[in-house]
Design a protein around this nucleic acid. Structure first.
Length: 487
RNA sequence: GUCCCCAUCGUCUAGAGGCCUAGGACGACACCCUUUCAAGGUGUAGACACGGAUUCGAAUUCCGUUGGGGGCACCA
């Protein structure tokens, strides 16, 4: 690497930060951190119509959540600012002006209506769509006429009529384009705002970007960008494209694929370390077996050359598994702290707030290894807080059991429990395990009935630990309730 | 339609001519552990899209076919 690494993420503030974009960020961020370079956040708000209020904040929030920190950006400043394109309009206008003067670009007065008609005809006669260069050869006089008619022109790039251009991509290798297939695209819109193509080139040069790492959807724009660089007399950066993230239908991942915003994953109880690990492993791998990597391992081992070239589907099942891995690895206190917001929100309203963290500390131990997301923690523990009496009676009567044998089992168990001096797992164990044999039941049958009676559920953490956490009184009450239910 | 890209188990991937009777992970299934659910353990099924060519030898190179994706806006 001869020049300092300076990379950027340049989103347009048109919505929520989604996982595809985050993956682009990760490649850029990792590149910067691996080489000790600079990671820049730049806002490309050149489309006034599509701009969404608050989008910049959401993007930043997503990046901060994943600890993908930037060294220069709108909120941070830096020596190459401002980092918001709408604040740099004069730069693009000057560049466009220069290109027109030097004959690399021209003003176009075609109306949107004319362009639409033109396109419709091209489609009808099965011609490749593209601007027909109507205004390309206008004389100064013709231009002046249009101007006096009050028409606001756009500036178009004067595409060479023939020749080819080759781009050497780090992930895709040599890609060659025939210039005859490219049209005179717009550099500057009639409202004075630049298009992506112009703004992107002007800023990447001005901000001394060394590597442009972006999605594959941009690869066919490379010749345009290269040509602008050439016309402007600038040296282009290294372009690196990565394959797209897809939905299960194999199409480019987008909003219609459901929860796709990184903030939604956060709200659905995924850990940031899971998302970092998981997204980092789509289209990039360390070796043939490592699945769980720390942030530092990603940084240490990152290399552009290991970016694959095939599109990848976002596999939610594997994500869920990985989140479980990270949840289990949390120390109990951390698990408590991270679960708390979900519990505050997800536990029934009748549960007293603020929540009793000491009690939580005790019961969370029982569910930590059972949770795949933090969002399911409230459901996992709710029976510790509310009496769940609505369960079906059949749940009390286990395999090979009858109503009578269940009533007996529960009745005798109740007796034994009442007489218990202490109420801990060992005591319960010694009191209840032998009881199964006495009653001629399998332990599973006895414990199953007790489980449903005390929790209202058929799947819970280990019975005795659960009962201890519930406390003797509540266990007895619930057994009584079950008995009443059976009567 | 046209240009560009891609092509290994259902999914994420390892593989850069012999190490491949193709490895790992998720998922699926079975069994073990076990009071249920998890977790854990063991195992099973499961892929080089197809056709040519190059080579002593091809998942790996080349060509074609097919399939998929992306671009072709006064959107990024």
């Amino acid at each position: 690497m001869t020049q300092p690494v300076r990379v950027r993420f340049a989103p347009s503030p048109t919505g929520m930060p989604h996982v595809g974009g985050i993956r682009t960020v990760m490649f850029n961020w990792l590149m910067a951190r691996h080489y000790g370079g600079v990671f820049i956040l730049r806002i490309e708000d050149t489309d006034v119509a599509r701009k969404v209020e608050g989008a910049v904040e959401y993007i930043m929030e997503g990046l901060r959540w994943l600890e993908l920190d930037w060294d220069e950006g709108p909120d941070k400043g830096g020596n190459y600012g401002p980092y918001v394109q709408s604040q740099r309009l004069h730069l693009y206008q000057e560049a466009a002006e220069r290109l027109v003067e030097q004959g690399y670009a021209y003003r176009c007065y075609c109306s949107p209506e004319r362009l639409e008609v033109m396109r419709a005809e091209q489609v009808k006669s099965k011609l490749p769509p593209g601007y027909d260069r109507h205004c390309r050869a206008f004389s100064a006089k013709e231009c002046a006429e249009q101007e006096t008619a009050g028409i606001k022109p756009v500036v178009r790039f004067k595409m060479p009529l023939e020749g080819e251009i080759t781009h050497n991509d780090i992930t895709y290798g040599k890609v060659t384009f025939d210039l005859r297939t490219l049209d005179d695209f717009i550099l500057l819109k009639s409202d004075g705002f630049p298009t992506y193509h112009l703004a992107n080139v002007v800023d990447d040069h001005a901000m001394a970007i060394s590597h442009v790492i972006r999605g594959e959807e941009w690869i066919s724009s490379v010749p345009r960008h290269l040509l602008i660089y050439k016309a402007l007399g600038y040296e282009p950066p290294e372009y690196v494209h990565h394959p797209l993230l897809r939905g299960t239908d194999h199409a480019k991942l987008s909003k219609r694929h459901g929860d796709v915003s990184i903030l939604e994953f956060r709200d659905n109880g995924y850990l940031p370390e899971t998302m970092f690990n998981f997204i980092g492993l789509i289209g990039w791998s360390l070796d043939d077996k490592t699945e769980i990597l720390t942030r530092q391992q990603f940084i240490d081992n990152f290399s552009l050359e290991r970016i694959g070239k095939t599109g990848a589907i976002f596999d939610r099942k594997k994500l869920e598994w990985m989140n479980g891995v990270y949840i289990r690895a949390l120390n109990p206190e951390d698990f408590l702290q991270r679960s708390l917001p979900f519990l505050e929100k997800g536990l029934p309203h009748q549960v007293k707030r603020p929540l009793d963290t000491d009690y939580l500390r005790q019961i969370l131990l029982l569910v930590q290894e059972r949770a795949k997301t933090l969002a399911e923690v409230p459901e996992l523990v709710s029976f510790f807080f509310v009496e769940e009496t609505a369960y079906p009676v059949e749940d009390l009567i286990g395999k090979g059991m009858t109503k009578e044998s269940t009533v007996e089992a529960l009745g005798v168990s109740r007796q034994r429990i009442v007489n218990l001096e202490k109420f801990d797992t060992e005591t319960l164990e010694t009191a209840l395990r032998p009881l199964a044999e006495e009653l001629g039941l399998k332990t599973g049958q006895l414990f199953g009935a007790l489980r449903t009676a005390t929790t209202g559920r058929t799947a819970t953490p280990p019975l005795f630990q659960t009962m201890v956490a519930l406390g003797k009184e509540r266990c007895l009450e619930r057994i009584d309730h079950a008995l009443a239910k059976l009567a």
